[in-house]
Computed example of a mutant assay.
Amino acid sequence: MADKSNFTVPLGISAAVHIGAIVVLALGVSFDDKPKPMPVAASAPIVEAVVIDQKMVNQRVEELKKQREDAARKEKARQKELERKAQEAKKARELEQQKIKQLEAERKRKEQETKKANDAAKAAKLKQQQEKEKAEKAEALRKQKEQEKKAAEEAAKKAAEKRKAEEAAAKKAEEERKRKEEAERKRKAEEERKRKEAAAKAQREQEMADALAAEQAALSKARQRQVVSEVQKYQAMIRATIQRNLVVDPSMQGKSCRVFIRLAKDGFVIASQTLDGDQVVCRAAKAAINKAGKLPVSSEADVYEKLKEINLTVSPE
């Protein structure tokens, strides 16, 4: 609608200018200026024309010439006036065209301005929308950053608490380690002390044991000698007892029998057995042992151990 109104005004002005020019041109033309027709002489006989005065002819020629000149001058003036009016009309048209161009340019300018305004409004609206979106994004980003900051602060707080807990645990562990190290050091020191004491005690005991062993060895040797002596003594006594109870036959002279005897602690004969030798001597020896029933034996345990099972050789004297 704005474009149609912009074209209506220039077109109306242009039409009015053209109509005015046409009216001016029409009013400026004088229809009386047309060349007057030459007077036509009345039909007369040719004879009369011959006698027409040359002066009148010349005068008429001059009049006609003057009329033509006047007509030509008027026509020239009219043409000049027409040219002037045409120039004015041309100038008016040019002015009108210029005005139309100006109006068209103004219309285009206004159209461009309108377009620019619309574009500016659209751009402003778009910018406003973009700024709104930007603001919303900025607000969302701010909230996100605030949440991230809050989360980071919470994480930092938790990390600090965790670090403190770890430091406390590490300190406690270090103290526990030092306590254990100290306890281990004390334990090792106590063990070393006990080991040294035990070593010293063991050394003393070993020295005492060695001394006792030496003493026992000496005593043992002495006792062994004594036991051997006692065993030999009791063996002789046992052999003498058997000899007393032995029934000797002359055929037994120079012969012997080896016998095995097991004795109780009181000397009672638990068992006897001939091992080898002359059978007569062996029977006589076995009968003598059974007859005795009890043989001499020492009350000392170590001497008895050597006498509880003995092998003797019986030879008739």
Score class of each variant (00 low, 15 high):
Arg185Phe: 03
Lys145Ser: 08
Lys149Gln: 12
Ala165Arg: 12
Lys194Ala: 08
Ala140Pro: 00
Lys137Gln: 15
Lys188Ala: 13
Arg187Pro: 01
Ala123Phe: 06
Ala124Glu: 07
Ala155Val: 07
Glu181Lys: 08
Lys127Glu: 09
Ala198Phe: 03
Glu181Val: 09
Gln203Phe: 15
Lys164Tyr: 09
Lys157Gln: 13
Lys143Gln: 10
Ala199Trp: 07
Lys145His: 11
Glu174Gly: 10
Glu175His: 08
Gln130Ala: 09
Glu139Thr: 03
Glu192Trp: 01
Lys171Gly: 04
Lys172Ile: 12
Lys137Ser: 06
Lys172Asp: 07
Ala156Pro: 00
Ala189Ser: 02
Arg193Phe: 00
Ala138His: 01
Lys171Pro: 00
Lys172Gln: 09
Glu154Thr: 09
Gln203Ser: 15
Arg185Val: 02
Glu153Ser: 07
Ala173Gln: 15
Arg195Asn: 05
Lys162Phe: 12
Lys194Asp: 01
Ala173Val: 09
Glu191Lys: 02
Glu174Cys: 06
Glu131Gln: 08
Lys127Val: 00
Ala168Phe: 12
Glu148Arg: 02
Ala135Met: 02
Arg163Trp: 04
Glu133Ile: 00
Ala189Asp: 02
Glu148Gln: 08
Ala155Gln: 14
Lys172Tyr: 13
Glu182Pro: 01
Ala189Gly: 04
Gln129Asn: 10
Glu167Lys: 08
Arg185Asn: 03
Ala159Gln: 15
Glu182Met: 02
Arg193Pro: 00
Ala200Arg: 13
Glu139Tyr: 06
Lys180Glu: 14
Ala183Glu: 14
Lys158Ser: 09
Ala173His: 09
Gln203Leu: 15
Lys194His: 06
Glu153His: 03
Ala140Arg: 06
Ala151Asn: 12
Glu182Cys: 00
Glu139Ala: 11
Gln130Thr: 04
Gln128Ala: 15
Ala135Trp: 02
Ala202Asn: 07
Lys143His: 07
Lys127Met: 02
Arg187Met: 07
Lys145Gln: 14
Ala183Tyr: 11
Ala151Val: 09
Lys164Ala: 13
Leu141Ile: 06
Gln203Met: 12
Ala173Glu: 14
Ala183Asp: 13
Ala156Lys: 11
Gln129Asp: 05
Glu139Trp: 04
Lys134Asp: 00
Ala159Asn: 12
Ala169Val: 13
Lys171Ala: 13
Glu133Trp: 03
Lys157His: 11
Gln129Thr: 03
Arg187Asn: 08
Glu154Phe: 11
Lys164Asp: 10
Glu133His: 01
Lys188Pro: 00
Lys125Ile: 07
Lys180Thr: 12
Glu133Val: 02
Lys134Ile: 04
Arg177Ile: 10
Lys201Ser: 05
Ala160Gly: 05
Gln203Ala: 15
Lys164Met: 11
Lys134Glu: 03
Ala151Asp: 08
Leu141Arg: 07
Ala156Gly: 05
Glu175Ile: 08
Glu146Arg: 06
Arg163Ile: 05
